[in-house]
Protein backbone atom coordinates (compact mmCIF):
# COMPACT_ATOMS: atom_id res chain seq x y z
CA UNK A 1 0.00 0.00 0.00
CA UNK A 2 1.47 3.30 -0.97
CA UNK A 3 0.04 6.76 -0.73
CA UNK A 4 -1.53 6.30 -4.16
CA UNK A 5 -3.79 3.45 -3.00
CA UNK A 6 -7.45 4.23 -3.48
CA UNK A 7 -10.20 3.18 -1.16
CA UNK A 8 -12.40 0.37 -2.47
CA UNK A 9 -14.78 0.46 0.48
CA UNK A 10 -15.80 3.71 2.08
CA UNK A 11 -18.15 3.76 5.03
CA UNK A 12 -19.28 7.06 6.45
CA UNK A 13 -21.39 7.40 9.56
CA UNK A 14 -22.81 3.95 8.93
CA UNK A 15 -25.45 3.08 11.51
CA UNK A 16 -27.87 0.20 11.88
CA UNK A 17 -30.48 -0.01 14.59
CA UNK A 18 -32.81 -2.88 15.35
CA UNK A 19 -35.44 -1.21 17.49
CA UNK A 20 -33.57 0.20 20.47
CA UNK A 21 -30.54 -1.92 19.88
CA UNK A 22 -27.74 -0.29 17.92
CA UNK A 23 -25.87 -2.99 16.03
CA UNK A 24 -23.52 -0.65 14.20
CA UNK A 25 -22.83 2.80 15.55
CA UNK A 26 -21.50 5.57 13.26
CA UNK A 27 -18.88 3.52 11.55
CA UNK A 28 -16.28 5.36 9.49
CA UNK A 29 -13.84 3.12 7.74
CA UNK A 30 -11.90 2.98 4.51
CA UNK A 31 -10.44 -0.15 3.05
CA UNK A 32 -7.79 0.25 0.39
CA UNK A 33 -7.56 -1.57 -2.86
CA UNK A 34 -5.37 -4.67 -2.71
CA UNK A 35 -5.07 -4.92 1.06
CA UNK A 36 -6.14 -7.72 3.36
CA UNK A 37 -8.22 -6.16 6.09
CA UNK A 38 -9.29 -7.98 9.21
CA UNK A 39 -12.48 -6.90 10.91
CA UNK A 40 -12.07 -8.32 14.39
CA UNK A 41 -14.46 -8.37 17.23
CA UNK A 42 -16.37 -10.67 19.55
CA UNK A 43 -19.62 -12.34 18.57
CA UNK A 44 -22.47 -9.90 18.23
CA UNK A 45 -20.22 -6.90 17.67
CA UNK A 46 -21.98 -6.04 14.43
CA UNK A 47 -19.46 -7.44 11.96
CA UNK A 48 -21.97 -9.42 9.94
CA UNK A 49 -24.44 -6.53 9.96
CA UNK A 50 -21.74 -4.27 8.57
CA UNK A 51 -21.01 -6.76 5.81
CA UNK A 52 -24.68 -7.15 4.95
CA UNK A 53 -25.04 -3.39 4.66
CA UNK A 54 -21.99 -3.31 2.45
CA UNK A 55 -23.58 -5.83 0.10
CA UNK A 56 -26.90 -4.06 0.11
CA UNK A 57 -28.63 -7.00 1.80
CA UNK A 58 -29.68 -4.83 4.73
CA UNK A 59 -30.51 -1.15 4.63
CA UNK A 60 -28.53 1.11 6.94
CA UNK A 61 -30.51 3.26 9.37
CA UNK A 62 -28.16 6.15 8.66
CA UNK A 63 -24.93 6.85 6.83
CA UNK A 64 -23.72 5.26 3.65
CA UNK A 65 -21.36 2.67 2.18
CA UNK A 66 -19.71 2.86 -1.17
CA UNK A 67 -18.01 -0.09 -2.75
CA UNK A 68 -15.81 0.77 -5.72
CA UNK A 69 -17.79 3.98 -6.07
CA UNK A 70 -21.23 2.32 -6.05
CA UNK A 71 -23.66 3.15 -3.29
CA UNK A 72 -24.57 -0.22 -1.73
CA UNK A 73 -28.11 0.84 -0.89
CA UNK A 74 -28.96 2.32 -4.26
CA UNK A 75 -26.98 0.08 -6.57
CA UNK A 76 -26.72 -3.28 -4.82
CA UNK A 77 -26.53 -5.18 -8.10
CA UNK A 78 -23.44 -3.30 -9.25
CA UNK A 79 -21.84 -3.95 -5.89
CA UNK A 80 -22.71 -7.65 -5.89
CA UNK A 81 -21.29 -8.01 -9.39
CA UNK A 82 -17.79 -7.22 -8.11
CA UNK A 83 -17.94 -8.57 -4.57
CA UNK A 84 -17.53 -12.24 -3.73
CA UNK A 85 -19.10 -13.13 -0.40
CA UNK A 86 -18.54 -16.12 1.82
CA UNK A 87 -21.28 -15.96 4.44
CA UNK A 88 -20.87 -17.07 7.97
CA UNK A 89 -22.10 -20.71 8.09
CA UNK A 90 -22.03 -20.99 4.33
CA UNK A 91 -24.59 -23.39 2.93
CA UNK A 92 -24.73 -25.36 -0.28
CA UNK A 93 -27.35 -27.48 -1.93
CA UNK A 94 -26.53 -30.85 -0.42
CA UNK A 95 -28.07 -32.86 -3.22
CA UNK A 96 -25.97 -31.17 -5.89
CA UNK A 97 -22.28 -31.80 -6.53
CA UNK A 98 -19.59 -29.23 -5.86
CA UNK A 99 -19.38 -28.49 -9.56
CA UNK A 100 -23.15 -28.07 -9.91
CA UNK A 101 -23.28 -25.71 -6.96
CA UNK A 102 -20.61 -23.52 -8.50
CA UNK A 103 -22.30 -23.70 -11.88
CA UNK A 104 -25.51 -22.38 -10.33
CA UNK A 105 -23.65 -19.43 -8.83
CA UNK A 106 -22.01 -18.80 -12.19
CA UNK A 107 -25.39 -18.80 -13.91
CA UNK A 108 -26.80 -16.38 -11.34
CA UNK A 109 -23.91 -14.12 -12.24
CA UNK A 110 -24.82 -14.38 -15.89
CA UNK A 111 -21.59 -16.08 -16.87
CA UNK A 112 -21.82 -17.83 -20.24
CA UNK A 113 -21.68 -21.59 -19.78
CA UNK A 114 -18.47 -21.92 -21.82
CA UNK A 115 -16.81 -19.47 -19.47
CA UNK A 116 -18.00 -21.24 -16.35
CA UNK A 117 -16.97 -24.62 -17.72
CA UNK A 118 -13.48 -23.21 -18.10
CA UNK A 119 -13.35 -21.37 -14.79
CA UNK A 120 -14.90 -23.87 -12.38
CA UNK A 121 -12.32 -26.70 -12.69
CA UNK A 122 -9.55 -24.14 -12.20
CA UNK A 123 -11.14 -22.85 -9.04
CA UNK A 124 -11.80 -26.31 -7.65
CA UNK A 125 -8.20 -27.17 -8.35
CA UNK A 126 -7.06 -24.03 -6.57
CA UNK A 127 -9.02 -24.78 -3.39
CA UNK A 128 -7.93 -28.41 -3.45
CA UNK A 129 -11.31 -29.92 -4.26
CA UNK A 130 -10.56 -31.15 -7.77
CA UNK A 131 -11.11 -34.80 -6.82
CA UNK A 132 -14.35 -34.03 -5.03
CA UNK A 133 -15.77 -32.01 -7.92
CA UNK A 134 -18.44 -34.56 -8.76
CA UNK A 135 -19.20 -35.53 -5.21
CA UNK A 136 -22.41 -34.37 -3.59
CA UNK A 137 -21.83 -31.54 -1.16
CA UNK A 138 -23.87 -33.38 1.47
CA UNK A 139 -20.87 -35.62 2.07
CA UNK A 140 -18.42 -32.73 2.51
CA UNK A 141 -16.66 -31.95 5.75
CA UNK A 142 -16.87 -28.51 7.28
CA UNK A 143 -13.41 -27.61 6.00
CA UNK A 144 -14.27 -28.72 2.48
CA UNK A 145 -17.45 -26.65 2.54
CA UNK A 146 -15.49 -23.62 3.65
CA UNK A 147 -13.03 -24.07 0.79
CA UNK A 148 -15.88 -24.61 -1.64
CA UNK A 149 -17.32 -21.37 -0.25
CA UNK A 150 -14.13 -19.57 -1.18
CA UNK A 151 -14.27 -21.03 -4.68
CA UNK A 152 -17.90 -19.93 -4.83
CA UNK A 153 -16.98 -16.38 -3.88
CA UNK A 154 -14.35 -16.35 -6.63
CA UNK A 155 -16.56 -17.69 -9.43
CA UNK A 156 -17.64 -14.25 -10.54
CA UNK A 157 -14.06 -13.00 -10.79
CA UNK A 158 -14.49 -10.41 -8.01
CA UNK A 159 -12.42 -7.33 -7.23
CA UNK A 160 -13.20 -7.68 -3.55
CA UNK A 161 -13.84 -10.78 -1.49
CA UNK A 162 -15.63 -10.66 1.83
CA UNK A 163 -15.11 -13.64 4.12
CA UNK A 164 -17.29 -13.88 7.19
CA UNK A 165 -15.67 -16.12 9.83
CA UNK A 166 -13.76 -18.18 7.25
CA UNK A 167 -11.88 -20.23 9.83
CA UNK A 168 -14.67 -20.93 12.27
CA UNK A 169 -15.19 -24.54 13.21
CA UNK A 170 -12.47 -26.09 11.09
CA UNK A 171 -9.39 -27.94 12.22
CA UNK A 172 -5.91 -26.32 12.36
CA UNK A 173 -4.88 -27.96 9.10
CA UNK A 174 -8.01 -26.62 7.44
CA UNK A 175 -7.39 -23.17 8.90
CA UNK A 176 -3.87 -23.15 7.50
CA UNK A 177 -5.17 -24.14 4.09
CA UNK A 178 -7.86 -21.46 4.08
CA UNK A 179 -5.42 -18.76 5.18
CA UNK A 180 -2.94 -19.80 2.51
CA UNK A 181 -5.67 -19.49 -0.06
CA UNK A 182 -6.49 -16.01 1.15
CA UNK A 183 -2.87 -14.91 0.96
CA UNK A 184 -2.52 -16.35 -2.51
CA UNK A 185 -5.57 -14.65 -3.88
CA UNK A 186 -4.52 -11.36 -2.40
CA UNK A 187 -0.92 -11.51 -3.56
CA UNK A 188 -1.10 -13.20 -6.92
CA UNK A 189 -4.40 -11.81 -8.11
CA UNK A 190 -4.52 -8.46 -6.40
CA UNK A 191 -7.96 -9.07 -4.93
CA UNK A 192 -8.88 -6.97 -1.93
CA UNK A 193 -9.89 -9.19 0.98
CA UNK A 194 -12.03 -8.32 3.96
CA UNK A 195 -12.00 -10.97 6.68
CA UNK A 196 -14.34 -10.83 9.59
CA UNK A 197 -13.41 -12.99 12.54
CA UNK A 198 -13.33 -13.24 16.28
CA UNK A 199 -10.24 -15.42 16.16
CA UNK A 200 -7.47 -12.87 16.07
CA UNK A 201 -4.54 -15.21 16.34
CA UNK A 202 -5.75 -17.17 13.33
CA UNK A 203 -6.00 -14.27 10.97
CA UNK A 204 -3.29 -11.96 12.26
CA UNK A 205 -0.55 -13.24 9.99
CA UNK A 206 -2.69 -12.79 6.93
CA UNK A 207 -4.00 -9.27 7.55
CA UNK A 208 -2.24 -6.11 6.48
CA UNK A 209 -4.46 -4.04 8.71
CA UNK A 210 -7.07 -4.85 11.29
CA UNK A 211 -9.97 -2.98 12.73
CA UNK A 212 -11.15 -3.89 16.18
CA UNK A 213 -14.86 -3.75 16.41
CA UNK A 214 -16.71 -3.92 19.69
CA UNK A 215 -20.40 -3.27 20.36
CA UNK A 216 -20.94 -1.63 17.03
CA UNK A 217 -17.99 0.72 17.33
CA UNK A 218 -14.59 0.61 15.77
CA UNK A 219 -12.19 1.02 18.69
CA UNK A 220 -8.91 0.79 16.82
CA UNK A 221 -7.66 0.54 13.25
CA UNK A 222 -4.20 -0.10 11.90
CA UNK A 223 -1.50 -2.70 11.38
CA UNK A 224 -1.24 -5.05 14.34
CA UNK A 225 2.26 -3.85 15.30
CA UNK A 226 1.07 -0.27 15.51
CA UNK A 227 -1.87 -1.26 17.62
CA UNK A 228 0.23 -3.14 20.10
CA UNK A 229 2.70 -0.26 20.24
CA UNK A 230 -0.08 2.20 20.99
CA UNK A 231 -1.32 0.00 23.71
CA UNK A 232 2.11 -0.44 25.26
CA UNK A 233 2.78 3.28 25.34
CA UNK A 234 -0.51 4.30 26.78
CA UNK A 235 -0.65 1.85 29.58
CA UNK A 236 1.08 0.50 32.60
CA UNK A 237 2.71 -2.84 32.16
CA UNK A 238 2.31 -6.06 34.03
CA UNK A 239 5.24 -8.41 34.56
CA UNK A 240 4.78 -12.06 35.39
CA UNK A 241 7.47 -13.48 37.60
CA UNK A 242 8.10 -16.93 38.97
CA UNK A 243 11.19 -17.50 41.06
CA UNK A 244 12.33 -20.18 43.51
CA UNK A 245 12.56 -19.39 46.41
CA UNK A 246 10.44 -16.26 46.37
CA UNK A 247 11.22 -14.80 49.76
CA UNK A 248 9.59 -11.83 51.44
CA UNK A 249 12.90 -9.94 51.30
CA UNK A 250 13.07 -10.41 47.58
CA UNK A 251 9.52 -9.12 47.17
CA UNK A 252 10.30 -6.08 49.31
CA UNK A 253 13.43 -5.56 47.30
CA UNK A 254 11.49 -5.54 44.05
CA UNK A 255 8.92 -3.17 45.47
CA UNK A 256 11.75 -0.69 46.10
CA UNK A 257 12.60 -0.45 42.41
CA UNK A 258 11.71 2.89 40.87
CA UNK A 259 8.71 2.61 38.60
CA UNK A 260 7.10 -0.35 40.31
CA UNK A 261 3.56 0.47 41.38
CA UNK A 262 2.51 -2.63 43.15
CA UNK A 263 2.39 -6.38 43.08
CA UNK A 264 0.08 -9.23 43.76
CA UNK A 265 0.34 -12.97 43.79
CA UNK A 266 -1.88 -15.11 41.68
CA UNK A 267 -1.60 -18.74 40.69
CA UNK A 268 1.91 -19.10 42.03
CA UNK A 269 2.98 -16.13 39.99
CA UNK A 270 3.95 -12.69 41.10
CA UNK A 271 2.24 -10.00 39.03
CA UNK A 272 4.17 -6.76 39.12
CA UNK A 273 2.55 -3.57 37.87
CA UNK A 274 4.99 -0.94 36.69
CA UNK A 275 5.14 2.30 34.73
CA UNK A 276 8.16 1.45 32.62
CA UNK A 277 10.12 -1.55 31.54
CA UNK A 278 12.02 -2.57 34.67
CA UNK A 279 12.74 -6.14 33.67
CA UNK A 280 16.47 -5.71 33.92
CA UNK A 281 16.41 -4.35 37.44
CA UNK A 282 14.10 -7.09 38.60
CA UNK A 283 16.22 -9.80 37.04
CA UNK A 284 19.26 -8.32 38.81
CA UNK A 285 17.53 -8.46 42.19
CA UNK A 286 16.45 -12.03 41.68
CA UNK A 287 19.99 -13.07 40.78
CA UNK A 288 21.40 -11.22 43.72
CA UNK A 289 18.99 -12.96 46.09
CA UNK A 290 20.29 -16.24 44.73
CA UNK A 291 16.88 -17.38 43.54
CA UNK A 292 16.30 -19.39 40.38
CA UNK A 293 14.32 -17.53 37.72
CA UNK A 294 11.66 -19.84 36.38
CA UNK A 295 9.32 -17.64 34.41
CA UNK A 296 9.56 -14.00 33.50
CA UNK A 297 7.43 -12.30 30.91
CA UNK A 298 5.95 -8.95 30.17
CA UNK A 299 2.25 -9.13 29.67
CA UNK A 300 0.63 -7.15 26.89
CA UNK A 301 3.00 -8.01 24.13
CA UNK A 302 0.96 -10.99 23.09
CA UNK A 303 -1.73 -10.21 20.58
CA UNK A 304 -4.22 -12.10 22.61
CA UNK A 305 -3.65 -9.57 25.35
CA UNK A 306 -4.19 -6.59 23.08
CA UNK A 307 -7.31 -8.14 21.88
CA UNK A 308 -8.66 -8.86 25.36
CA UNK A 309 -7.69 -5.39 26.43
CA UNK A 310 -9.65 -3.68 23.68
CA UNK A 311 -12.63 -5.92 24.18
CA UNK A 312 -12.77 -5.15 27.85
CA UNK A 313 -12.32 -1.45 27.39
CA UNK A 314 -15.21 -0.95 25.03
Amino acid sequence: MGGEATAIIEMAGLTKKYGDFTAVDHLDLQIMEGEVFGLLGPNGAGKTTTILMMLGLTEPTAGRVRVAGYDSTRKPLDVKRIVGYLPDNVGFYDDLTARENLRYTASLNGLPSAESRRRIPDLLEKVGLAEAANQKVGSFSRGMRQRLGIADALVKGPKLVVLDEPTLGIDPEGVRHVLELISTMSHSEGITVLISSHLLHQVQQTCDRVGIFVKGRLVAVGPIQTLSQQLMDSDSKVLELQAEPLTTELKDDIRQIKGVDGMQESGGMLLITCQEDVRRQIADRVMKAGAALQHFRMRGFSLEDIYMKYFREA
Partner: peptide
Protein backbone atom coordinates in the same frame (compact mmCIF):
# COMPACT_ATOMS: atom_id res chain seq x y z
CA UNK B 1 -27.95 -21.02 0.87
CA UNK B 2 -30.28 -18.04 0.76
CA UNK B 3 -27.70 -15.49 1.83
CA UNK B 4 -25.25 -16.92 -0.68
CA UNK B 5 -27.77 -16.77 -3.51
CA UNK B 6 -28.87 -13.25 -2.61
CA UNK B 7 -25.29 -12.03 -2.56
CA UNK B 8 -25.17 -12.74 -6.27
CA UNK B 9 -26.13 -9.94 -8.64
Amino acid sequence: TLSRVLSQP
